[in-house]
Design a protein around this nucleic acid. Structure first.
Lengths: 191, 191
DNA sequence: ATTACTATACCAACCAGACGGTTAATAAAC
DNA sequence: GTTTATTAACCGTCTGGTTGGTATAGTAAT
C-alpha cells in the first residue's frame, strides 16, 4: 500500500521500465500505453498495474530512475575528474551526454511525461535547477550554462532522430566540450 | 473576408493551428485531440476534420508552419547582419532562439509529432540537416554546431517549463551568443 | 429573376477501437 | 496462510474518423 523504496528489487519493475523507455524511443511518447507495454513485456495489463498503480506513477518512476542514473554517472565522472578544477562542470556535461543503451532512450521519461502530464516534470525541474545553480558557482558560468543547454539540445536531437551523425560523433563532441571548458573559462575569467 | 494565396488558405486554418500550438504548450502533446481542439476553437470536430483530414495532416501543418516561420525569421536576421562575416551563423542562432508569442509554443509541433508519429519529423530532419550543413561551411563549425544545439536545448527547457528564468534571460542569452561567435571563432581559427 | 448546379465551410450524431483502470480469482513464496 | 505477483475479463470514457446533412455564396444558363 505504502510507497516502497530501496533497492533489492530486481523484479519485473525494471523490465517494465526498460520496455517503457524502449517503446517511447521507438514509437513516440504517445504510444506508451499499458496495452503496448503488456505486449512488449509479456506481462498482462493487470500485472503492470500491480507494479505501477497508474500511468502517472509509471511516468514518475521512469523519470526518477533516469535522474538517479544520471546522478550516479555524474558522481562517477566527478570522481574521475576530482583533481580537475573544472571537474564539476565536466562531470555534469559528460553525464548528461552519456547514455547507458544503444541510443536515445534518455529523455524518454521526460518526453512521455511532458506529453501526458507536464506537472510530473516538477521533480525534474528541481533537479535541473540544482544543476544550474551548481554551474553558476563556477567561473565562466554563462559558458557553463550554454554548454549544459548544448548537451541537452544534442540529446534531444538524437532522441528524436533528427540528425544522422550526432550519435556517431558523440565521443568527438565530448572531447570538444572538455577542451572548450578548459581553454575558454580562462579566457572568460581574464576578461 | 476571403483571401486566397496559392493553395486554399482560409483564416480559420490558422486559428486552428494557433489553438493546437497553445494546447500542446499548455497541456502537453498528449492532450492535443480533436475534441479538445473543438472546445478551444468553437469549431466542431467535423469542421476541424474538414480543414485537416487526419491528425497526421494537422501535425504536418503545424510542423510546416513552424519551419516556414523560422525560415522567414532567419532570412530577416540574415538581412540585418548582411555585412557581418558571421551573419549566417548569427541569424541561424537568433531565429532559433526567437519566439513569436509569449513563450514556448515553438516546439509544439515537434513534440506533438514526436509523440504521435515520429515519421512526421522527416521534413524537419531534412531542414535541420540543411542548417547543419550551412553551419559547417563556417569557420569554427564545431563551435557553431555546439551553439546551435545550445539554442535548441534552451528552447526545449523553456517549452517544458524546466527552468524559471531561461525565458527571462533570453535577451541576455542572445547577446552572449553573439559575443561568443564574434570572439571565439577567431580564437578557433588561429589554433 | 428563377432555377439549377457547384464549391466552401461547417455541424450533430454516430462508430469501432483504444485507453486507463477495476475486480475477482489464482498461484507461488515466505 | 498471509503476502506477493499475476491473470483474464470486464467497464466507462475518450479518440480518430465517417456519414449525411445544412447554410452560404458564386456561376451561369433559362
Amino acid at each position: 500500500m505504502v510507497e516502497k523504496k530501496g533497492a533489492g528489487r530486481p523484479s519485473n519493475r525494471d523490465v517494465i521500465l526498460d520496455a517503457a523507455d524502449q517503446l517511447v524511443a521507438a514509437e513516440g511518447a504517445g504510444h506508451l500505453t499499458f496495452d503496448a507495454l503488456s505486449q512488449n513485456t509479456g506481462i498482462s495489463k493487470g500485472g503492470l498495474l500491480y507494479h505501477f498503480n497508474s500511468k502517472d506513477s509509471l511516468l514518475q518512476a521512469m523519470l526518477k530512475r533516469r535522474v538517479e542514473r544520471y546522478e550516479a554517472l555524474r558522481e562517477q565522472y566527478h570522481q574521475q575528474y576530482r583533481d580537475d578544477p573544472k571537474g564539476e562542470l565536466k562531470s555534469i556535461l559528460l553525464a548528461a551526454l552519456d547514455t547507458d543503451a544503444e541510443c536515445s532512450r534518455l529523455g524518454s521519461g521526460m518526453l512521455a511525461a511532458a506529453a501526458s502530464n507536464p506537472e510530473l516534470l516538477g521533480p525534474l525541474k528541481e533537479h535541473i535547477s540544482d544543476t544550474l545553480k551548481r554551474i553558476e558557482c563556477i567561473v565562466g558560468s554563462k559558458l557553463g550554462k550554454t554548454l549544459f543547454y548544448a548537451v541537452h539540445g544534442a540529446r534531444l536531437f538524437e532522441q528524436l532522430n533528427l540528425c544522422d551523425d550526432c550519435v556517431h560523433e558523440r565521443e568527438d563532441f565530448a572531447q570538444y566540450l572538455l577542451k572548450l571548458v578548459d581553454e575558454l573559462t580562462e579566457i572568460e575569467s581574464i576578461r
